[in-house]
């Protein structure tokens, strides 16, 4: 069999009604395909379950981003005010230890440190969410491979697309193409990477 000259991202089938795409996705899932994604002009009931949508790791990333922010602020406030435990001092350079006396309060005034800790937790968690989302969406590539298929532009108006991706272990160009054609789509096209 000839190896394709262009790397294939997957195969996309175009459907005309929401019912068709939900049926198609259900059949594809039952046939054992896992790496697939559906595209539609509006939210379609049950499609979510039909494609076997898996949640991303973004919440976990955001959690650890927030945790990093908390400890960054904790370290920053504690060390700049000289409130770190004294056994650490021998390990610090001389110029670093500069205790701040603020109104005679203890050096380790943790209640005052909580607002910056809170702020950095939120900041780091949101930055991680935004950039994590971009990375999980394939950044730095600035477009989705499906836009290589000219007909795909109709996804924002009146057509429904089901894409089975080449990374699926069950994917095989001829077999999958036949399978998709068996679902009576309007058209099946190859998606170049």
């Amino acid at each position: 069999m000839d190896a394709p000259k262009v790397k294939i991202y997957g195969l996309v089938a175009e459907f005309e009604t929401p019912t068709q795409i939900v049926d198609a996705a259900n059949q594809a899932r039952e046939a054992g395909y896992t790496a697939m994604e559906a595209y539609s002009p509006f939210p379609v009931m049950d499609l979510h379950e039909a494609v076997g949508f898996k949640r991303t790791m973004l919440p976990t990333l955001a959690f650890f981003g927030g945790l990093t922010g908390f400890f960054t602020a904790f370290t920053l406030t504690t060390f700049t005010s000289g409130g770190a435990p004294s056994f650490i001092n021998p390990f610090l350079p001389d110029w670093f230890y500069y205790p701040l006396n603020i109104g005679g309060r203890p050096l380790n005034s943790w209640p005052a440190f909580i607002p910056p800790e809170f702020e950095l937790t939120v900041l780091f968690a949101s930055i991680t969410s935004v950039f994590g989302m971009l990375l999980l969406n394939g950044y730095p590539r600035l477009y989705h491979p499906l836009f290589n298929v000219p007909r795909f532009s109709r996804v924002t108006t009146d057509r429904f697309f089901l894409c089975i991706e080449a990374k699926d272990s069950k994917f095989d160009l001829q077999g999958t193409k036949q399978f998709l054609e068996g679902l009576q789509p309007y058209e099946v096209s190859e998606v170049p990477e």
């Binding site: 109104g103 309060r105 209640p111 005052a112 909580i114 607002p115």
Partner: peptide, 12 residues
Amino acid sequence: TFSQFLLIWCAN
């Protein structure tokens, strides 16, 4: 709860 505590703690 924390705001009430922090303001009173800061003002002392």
